[in-house]
Design a protein around this nucleic acid. Structure first.
Lengths: 367, 367
DNA sequence: CGCAGGGTCTGAAACGTGTCAACCCTCCCC
DNA sequence: GGGGAGGGTTGACACGTTTCAGACCCTGCG
C-alpha cells in the first residue's frame, strides 16, 4: 500500500539511487539503455515522486496560491482563470483557497500556505489585511511578507511600497456611473452597497458622489442604502426599502456596489411593477456574465477581470524569479461603463450632437 | 531571508531540538517555564514550521483536494462550500484545483496532488475518468485509486465498486422536467445540451425522452439541439437556431441541460420577441442563484449542491480514517423541480382537481 | 537510606529526495 | 604507450522535522 520510493526503484532497475534521480531530473545525462530500465521499473512499481521530500531538499514548492474572499462570487472566478493562464505559461500550478468571508479561515489558509512554502500568494485580503491590528502586532499577512514570501494584492491598492498590487480604479468606476446617470437627467440618485468597511464599496460611493456633486447641478440629491453584504439577497432587502418610499421621494436611479445587489434590486422593482429604466434606472458593478441576461439587461461597470488575474500572477512570478532586483509595482486598471437597457430608455430621444454611450448586448468574452 | 528552522529556535531558547518539537506537538509534556522560553524564541525569530519536512516524516499531508471541471460554474461553488464545511468540522483544509475543461490540466493537477500525498481527492472527472483508455492503460485517476489514495467521485456514479461516489439522479431530473412540460400540454419539445459525451447531458436527455414517450401521448415530438458547451454563449447559439424555425415547426417548450444554456436561450427568445412562457416554455437545470432573477424567472431542476459536497467530503474523511474497514458507498440524491414563470403561464386556467406545482420566488438558501 | 516512578529533557535515527565531488571506463590524440 | 577528456554512474551528505528510547533529576514511600 505504501507507495514505492526511489530506493526500491533503483534496486529493481539495478542502478543507484542517484541514477534514478538523474533519470527524473536530467534524463540526458543517463545512457538510453539505463534510462529505459529505470523507466520500466518506475512503471512496474507505480512509483510516484514524493513532493514533500523534493521540496524539503529544494527549499520551496512549485505552486502559487490564490486566496479569494468568496469563491461563489463570479468576479473571482475570472481572476482565477487569468492567473491560472499566466502561471501555466511559466509552468507553475495554481491552487485556490476560499476564505469564504471568514477571517479565521483566511488566517488558517495563510498559515498553511506559508508552512507549505508556496512560491507566492495572490490574495484579496478580507480586511485590507496589511495594516497592523490594534494590539500593535502586525497582521498575519504583513508578517508573511516580512518573512519573505512574495505576495501580490489583488483588487486592493497597497498603501505601502513593500509589495505589488493590482487593482481597478474604483473611484473612477463610481464616477463613470455617476456621470452616466446625471447625463440621463436623473436628479435623485441612490447608492446601494455595504459594508463601507470594504474599500471598494467606499470608493465606488465616493466616485459616484463626486460625479453627482460636480456635474449633477443644483437640484441633485444623493441618498445611501447601506447593505450588510454584497449579495442578491441584500439587494432585495435594499430594493424593498426603496420601493416602499413614496414616489415623490423615491430615487429615480440606483447605482449598486456590485451586480448581485443590482440584480436583487432589479428583481424587487419588477415585483413592485416599477418599470426599469422608466421609473428606476439601475447601474451595477462588475459586469458579471448574467448582467446581460437579467430581467432587463443590466448596465454595469466592467472590470478587466481576467487581465487583473493575469497581471497579478505575472507580477508575482516576476518577483519570484527576479528576487532582490524586483521592483514593486502597483498596477491600476481602468474600468469601463457598459450601457444596457437598465439605465437608458431606448425610445427616448438622444441628446443632439452627441453619440449616445455605446450599447452592448451580451458580455464580451475576455481576451 | 531564509526562514529560521527548528534548530535555531532550539539554540536561542537554550534547549534541544526535540524540546522545541515537543512544544509544538505535545505542549503538555514540557515544563511551563521552558515552554515560555521556546515560544518566545519562536516569536522572535519568526519561525514557521516547514510542512514539507513534517509531511515527509509523517508520510502524508493534512489537506484534501477538490478538483472541479470549471470553477466558473456556480454549481461547483456550492459543492466546494459544502465540502469545506464538512472538512472544517474534522480539522482538514481544502484546496481547490480548477481543471477548466482541459484534461491536460486535470492530469497535471492529479499528478501534483498525488505527489503531494494529499489525504484524499474529491473530483468531478472530465471524462468519466475511471474507464481505461483505448490503449489499455488505466486512466490517471484509476491509477491513483489503485495506489491507495482515497478518491470520491462527485456528480458521477461509479460503475465499479472500488470507490465512493455522490451524485444526483440525472435521469430523474430529466424526467421531472419532461413530465412537467407534458402536463403543461406541450407537444413539440426540444432538448438543448451537449456534448453528449458528458454523462449528465445524456442522462438528462434520457429522462426527458422517457417522460415524453411514456406520458406525452400520440402527438408528442422530441427534437434535440446539440451544443458544444454548457455556457450561456452556447445557449444563445442554440436559441438562434430555434428562433429561426418557422412557427409551425418550432418547439413550444425547451428543456436545457443547465441553467446557463437556458439563460442564453431565454435571452434570444426575448430578443426575437417570442414571449416566454406563452410562445416558448423553458426549463433549466441546476437552479443557480440567478435563475430566480432572470428576464423571466426560470423554472429549473434543483440539485442539493451543498449537500452533495458535504456528503462527498464526509465519505472521503470516513475512508481516510476508517482505512481498510471502510465500505465504499454510492450516494444518490434526488433532484427537485422548481416551477417559476418561464414554464407556467400564471394567467392560464389550472387543471381542475389538482393543485398546481409549487411556485417558488427566490432561490432558497441551502441549509 | 534505597528504590520506584514520574516529570523533563535530549541524542540519534529515520523519512525520500537532490546535488556534488569523485570515480571508472572508453576513446582519442600525441 | 601514455595521458587526457569526457560520458556515465555512484556514494555520501544535507534538507527540517518527528519519534523513541533512554538519561537525568527529584520526590515520595517503604
Amino acid at each position: 500500500m505504501a507507495t514505492a520510493n526511489i530506493r526500491e526503484v533503483a534496486h529493481r532497475a539495478g542502478v543507484s539511487v542517484s541514477t534514478v534521480s538523474n533519470v527524473l531530473n536530467r534524463p540526458l545525462t543517463v545512457a538510453p539503455a539505463t534510462r529505459q530500465r529505470v523507466l520500466a521499473a518506475i512503471e512496474e512499481l507505480g512509483y510516484v515522486r514524493n513532493d514533500s521530500a523534493r521540496q524539503l531538499r529544494a527549499g520551496r514548492s512549485r505552486t502559487i496560491a490564490i486566496v479569494v474572499m468568496d469563491i461563489g462570487n463570479p468576479f473571482f472566478t475570472d481572476v482565477v482563470r487569468g492567473a491560472e493562464r499566466a502561471a501555466e505559461e511559466r509552468g507553475a500550478m495554481v491552487i485556490v483557497c476560499n476564505s469564504g468571508d471568514s477571517s479565521e479561515r483566511e488566517r488558517r489558509h495563510l498559515e498553511l500556505l506559508e508552512e507549505q512554502r508556496v512560491q507566492g500568494i495572490l490574495i484579496t485580503p478580507l480586511h485590507d489585511g496589511v495594516a497592523p491590528a490594534r494590539d500593535g502586532r502586525e497582521s498575519p499577512l504583513a508578517q508573511i511578507i516580512e518573512r519573505g514570501t512574495p505576495v501580490v494584492l489583488v483588487d486592493r491598492e497597497s498603501g505601502r511600497h513593500n509589495r505589488c498590487s493590482v487593482a481597478v480604479h474604483d473611484v473612477l468606476g463610481g464616477r463613470l456611473a455617476g456621470e452616466h446617470l446625471v447625463e440621463q437627467r436623473h436628479r435623485r440618485i441612490a447608492f446601494v452597497g455595504g459594508p463601507f468597511s470594504i474599500r471598494q464599496v467606499a470608493e465606488r460611493h465616493r466616485g459616484l458622489s463626486e460625479a453627482v456633486a460636480e456635474r449633477g447641478g443644483p437640484g441633485a440629491e444623493l441618498s445611501v442604502f447601506t447593505t450588510d453584504a454584497l449579495t442578491a439577497e441584500a439587494g432585495r432587502t435594499a430594493g424593498e426599502e426603496i420601493a416602499a418610499l413614496p414616489a415623490a421621494q423615491r430615487p429615480t436611479a440606483v447605482f449598486c456596489a456590485n451586480d448581485l445587489l443590482a440584480l436583487g434590486v432589479l428583481q424587487v422593482m419588477t415585483m413592485h411593477e416599477l418599470a426599469v429604466p422608466r421609473d428606476m434606472a439601475i447601474v451595477g458593478y462588475d459586469d458579471i456574465e448574467f448582467a446581460g441576461s437579467a430581467a432587463v439587461p443590466l448596465s454595469s461597470i466592467r472590470q478587466p477581470r481576467a487581465q487583473l488575474g493575469r497581471a497579478a500572477a505575472q507580477l508575482l512570478l516576476e518577483e519570484i524569479y527576479a528576487g532582490a532586483e524586483h521592483q514593486h509595482r502597483n498596477v491600476v486598471f481602468k474600468p469601463e461603463l457598459v450601457v444596457r437597457r437598465s439605465s437608458s430608455e431606448p425610445h427616448r430621444r438622444r441628446l443632439a450632437g452627441r453619440p449616445g454611450p455605446r450599447q452592448a448586448m451580451g458580455p464580451r468574452t475576455e481576451e
